[in-house]
Design a protein around this nucleic acid. Structure first.
Length: 905
RNA sequence: GCGCGGGUGGCGGAAUGGUAGACGCGCUAGUUUCAGGAGCUAGUGGGGUAAAACCUGUGUGAGUUCGAGUCUCAUCUCGCGCACCA
């Protein structure tokens, strides 16, 4: 009987589905384990071989945990709202729901072939009204809540109203005024800010959706624009999001990314009095270097700062306005490109240094950001590189404040040295001077210590169709929440998916888009809305009374292992944590943090192949000979290349242009060049998992993806290496079958066979728990080589082997497990127990004393020549003069030969 | 500029401070087969030898150690993230 993977895989996949083998049911008698993949956006291109990498890893771990006796929750779903389906809809008129459903079905088909152990009964789709009901529900909760700084958590807005009433600030306000007041406190609020506007997409974008001035999706230019938008008060959670990282089992690099994004900085706000003619204003600045206040030689305002208008003198008005116009015209991209170019304009007014009484000019410059701190800074050119560049460009004074520093060429930014020219701070180190200066400022009522965060509130509106509608309507212009009982507020049908002629979002096209006779909000929610709490929904996906029931939530709690790409570090992974903390504050979920352990799988890159066409001909020259000709390098479809050898016939048939291609061969073959590039259609290097499943089977695919290298590393896909793991499975099969005969016996295993097995058990256990899947696969191969060598066909060895291997190759192992006489799925088997005694059985440990003080333990195989060992021990005192009392000496011996002496304290 | 990871054969990659290159691909030779993008056996870092011995070897340079791919410092280089955040 041959290893017929196609038949085997199809049969067991059907069996698993029909018997709901992977169904997760709350079971308080078992410990839970929640393994989650970042659910995919179902794009039109389908899966390539890089996508399932993380899914395979999480599946292996899920199956491992099941064998270890855990009740495993391992669900899957789709992040189904999003721009590409909508862009496609605009071009073709095809409803996004239709394309999305089509893509989901295609994804499901591809996923099913790989043999994942998902509980598909728990599938969620973010575009399903039964699902986005709870996205809208969470939004309503955020709209109806505020962040109470005293209790340091979110609370219902009613507690704030009560507070206002008690303070006499509420009664007497009009309905509009009350709404406006509360809007400044709500967790989900509407506010006017500078947003990333993408004209090509016709929508605003969040900070993490923009990269280097272009939209992440589509790569269209993005500009800054002031607009009224829905926002989430993520910034209120900055400190908790930062502190929460400490308890998480995430990589340091990912934590650093989040820390960086949150951007906490401790400093001090200080008030400078500014005179514009005879009018006086108090301008507050933010600085982390309060100690340098004696070196302030000017102030700088952000161009968008509200102070600009008030502090511009009549004489400078024209110049300032000219500058503002110039600054506004620039796109975000141009600003970035001119990062080091210094621009600015004098406002005409002067500020008084609160410590020295000196008068310094107030300038306006782009290098100060309106959105951070107070939008105004005190400039200390001697000790800040940016201020220095500005001072040099506009010829402003530079006062050094640290003994012995040289500021003739560049500023001295380091935070060390002794202060000088600084009044009462003279003689202190910088590290002493900072708190001393802040204390002085506070004591004299000139300002106060202040912590700032770079984390901004999340822009939550999108001017698009294919997203969750906001459950908000406008009563005489006042935003009002839709009643909870009327959720979900489903997306209306519209005839076209473009914005309206007047530039309104597509929802404005909907007929009767009203609630209680009032107009509804026409924006929709962004992509991250639906993905922020999906892990909670999996716990209780059919519940129509709550996002998740208390019972389900208290059993599953949070995700124990989350696997996904690093691209979500500052988007989804921040928003989800925020969302979860908010729900925690209101008592809806049991855990503060959603994802306990997180692993970022690396990208699988493509391996492109090239052919070399001699210029002006249709002749292609083999790689080794190409330097003798003038050639152009052309991408060739990797699927018609094997081991870098071109299939000439397939090449001629590939494209009409190559029908009559001629070849210059080396050794009778056409050798292609190659390079590692991103896997993409345009480079003809996309490898489809379906194709691998057809040729080699899902078990081989799973094994090979893990074997490629460490999970977290990026690595190239190279189909040619797959033969090795495929061979491994064929050899496994041959341990069970010889032709049509089942050859497994009940014979007792030999010590050598037991050693092979238990070495493997130990390695599989340790490496799987450490997520080192590539070395685990290698361990299986080593064991296989030994078993083939030993010609072992014994149940005692093969059964535990099959159980362990089933986490990697479930289909073939299910088949073999049943062949061994079992009638339940291998999923319900137990992970074999590791017995150390079997693996050290061949070694001897000799404790040795020297001079009655030292003890040597000599650990060596039996086969080592005793005379040789004795000699070493005798000679040791001479060769090991460094050995102290109580040291343990270990002699490492390979058969017959002493290799090294180890000393351990 | 700041922060975080990496540099090991022809390739992907292994190595609790202790035989560097596991395992796999590729390659070489042999063998088997009607055939194969098939199976089996042996070899495979470089130099050296008939074969051994031997020499050399983990980006570069120092250091710690009886012993360093691994630890420390410096340096070069690649990748990623943030980026006028005061």
């Amino acid at each position: 009987m041959e290893y017929d993977f196609k038949e085997i895989e199809a049969r067991w996949q059907k069996y698993w589905a029909e018997n709901h083998v992977f169904k997760a049911v709350e079971d308080k008698s078992k410990p839970k384990y929640y393994v989650l993949d970042m659910f995919p956006y179902p794009s039109g291109a389908g899966l390539h071989v890089g996508h399932p990498l993380g899914y395979i890893a999480s599946d292996i771990y899920s199956r491992y945990k099941r064998l270890c006796g855990f009740n495993v929750l391992h669900p899957m779903g789709y992040d189904a709202f999003g721009l590409p389906a909508e862009q496609y809809a605009i071009q073709t008129g095809q409803h996004p729901e239709k394309t999305t459903t089509g893509n989901i079905n295609r994804y499901r088909g591809q996923l099913d072939r790989i043999g994942f152990s998902y509980d598909w009964d728990r599938e969620v789709r973010t575009c399903d009204p039964a699902y986005y009901k709870w996205t809208q529900w969470a939004f309503l909760k955020m709209f109806g809540s505020w962040y109470n700084p005293e209790t340091d958590k979110a609370e219902p807005i009613e507690t704030l109203v009560a507070k206002f009433k008690a303070e006499g600030k509420w009664d007497g306000l009009s309905e509009k005024e009350q709404s406006d007041l509360l809007m400044q406190y709500r967790i989900a609020y509407q506010g006017e800010t500078a947003v990333n506007w993408c004209p090509a997409l016709g929508t605003v974008l969040a900070n993490d959706e923009v990269k280097e001035g272009y939209s992440v999706r589509g790569g269209h230019p993005v500009e800054q624009k002031k607009m009224k938008q829905w926002q989430l008060r993520v910034s209120a959670y900055a400190e908790r999001l930062l502190r929460g990282l400490d308890d998480l089992d995430w990589t340091d690099s990912l934590k650093d990314m989040q820390k960086n994004w949150i951007g906490k900085s401790r400093g001090c706000e200080m008030v400078f009095q500014v005179e514009n003619g005879d009018r006086k204003y108090d301008v507050t600045i933010f600085t982390t270097r309060a100690d340098t206040v004696f070196g302030v030689t000017f102030l700088v305002l952000a161009p968008e700062s509200e102070w600009v208008e008030k502090l511009t003198s009549p004489e400078q008005k024209a110049a300032v306005e000219e500058y503002l116009v110039q600054a506004k015209k620039k796109t975000e991209r141009e600003r970035l490109a001119e990062t080091r170019k210094v621009t600015g304009v004098f406002s005409g007014s002067y500020a008084t240094n609160p410590l020295t009484g000196d008068k310094v000019p107030v300038w306006i410059s782009e290098y100060v950001l309106a959105g951070y701190g107070t939008g105004a800074i005190m400039a200390v050119p001697a000790h800040d590189g940016r201020d220095y560049a500005f001072a040099k460009a506009f010829n402003l004074p530079i006062i050094p404040l640290i003994e012995g520093c040289d500021v003739s060429e560049q500023s001295f930014d380091a935070k060390d040295g002794i202060m000088c020219n600084s009044g009462f701070l003279n003689g202190l180190t910088v590290k002493e001077a900072i708190p001393a200066a802040i204390k002085y400022v506070e004591d004299h009522g000139l300002g106060h210590a202040k912590v700032n965060y770079r984390l901004r509130d999340a822009i939550f509106s999108r001017q698009r169709y294919w997203g969750e509608p906001f459950p908000i309507y406008y009563k005489d212009g006042i935003p009002m929440p839709v009643d909870e009982k009327d959720l979900p507020l489903t997306l209306p049908e519209i005839d076209e998916f473009k914005p309206t002629e007047t530039g309104e979002p597509p929802l404005a096209r909907a007929k009767d888009w009203t609630y209680k006779g009032y107009p509804l909000e026409t924006s929709t929610m962004p992509g991250f809305a639906g993905s922020s709490a999906y892990y909670l929904r999996y716990m209780d996906p059919q519940n129509d009374k709550a996002l998740v029931s208390r019972e389900a939530d208290e059993y599953w709690r949070n995700v124990d292992l989350y696997i996904g790409g690093t691209e979500h570090a500052t988007g989804h992974l921040i928003y989800s944590r925020f969302w979860n903390k908010f729900l925690y504050d209101l008592g809806y979920v049991a855990e503060q943090e959603p994802f306990r352990k997180l692993i970022n799988q690396g990208m699988i890159q493509g391996r492109s192949n090239f052919v070399y066409r001699i210029i002006g001909t249709n002749t292609f020259v083999s790689y080794g000979l190409k330097d003798k000709y003038e050639t152009t390098q052309i991408h060739v479809n990797v699927n018609i290349v094997h081991n870098d050898r071109l299939d000439l016939e397939a090449f001629r048939n590939w494209m009409p242009d190559y029908k009559d291609a001629e070849f210059i061969l080396e050794n009778g073959e056409y050798v292609c060049g190659w390079a590692i590039e991103k896997m993409s259609k345009s480079m003809f290097n996309v490898v489809n998992p379906d194709m691998i499943c057809d040729t080699y089977g899902a078990d081989t695919l799973r094994l090979y993806e893990m074997f490629l290298g460490p999970l977290e590393q990026s690595k190239p896909w190279d189909t040619k290496g797959i033969d090795g793991v495929n061979r491994f499975l064929k050899r496994l099969w041959r341990l069970f079958y010889e032709r049509d005969n089942f050859i497994v016996t009940d014979e007792k295993a030999t010590p050598a066979e037991l050693k092979t097995l238990h070495k493997l058990i130990g390695k599989v256990q340790a490496d799987t728990e450490a997520f080192s899947f590539n070395t685990t696969v290698a361990a299986f191969m080593i064991a296989m080589n030994e078993l083939v060598e030993e010609d072992c066909h014994k149940r005692e060895i093969l059964e535990p082997l099959v159980i362990m291997l089933s986490i990697y190759c479930p289909h073939i192992c299910e088949e073999l497990y049943h062949a061994l006489g079992h009638d339940t799925s291998v999923t319900y088997a137990e992970f074999p127990e590791y017995v150390e005694a079997y693996t050290v059985e061949n070694n001897c440990t000799y404790p040795v004393q020297f001079n009655g003080k030292m003890r040597f333990t000599v650990d060596l195989p039996k086969s080592a020549a005793p005379a040789e060992v004795e000699k070493v021990i005798r000679e040791m005192p001479q060769t090991s003069k460094y050995v102290g009392d109580g040291a343990i000496v270990k002699v490492i011996v390979v058969p017959g030969k002493i290799v090294n002496i180890v000393v351990k304290q």
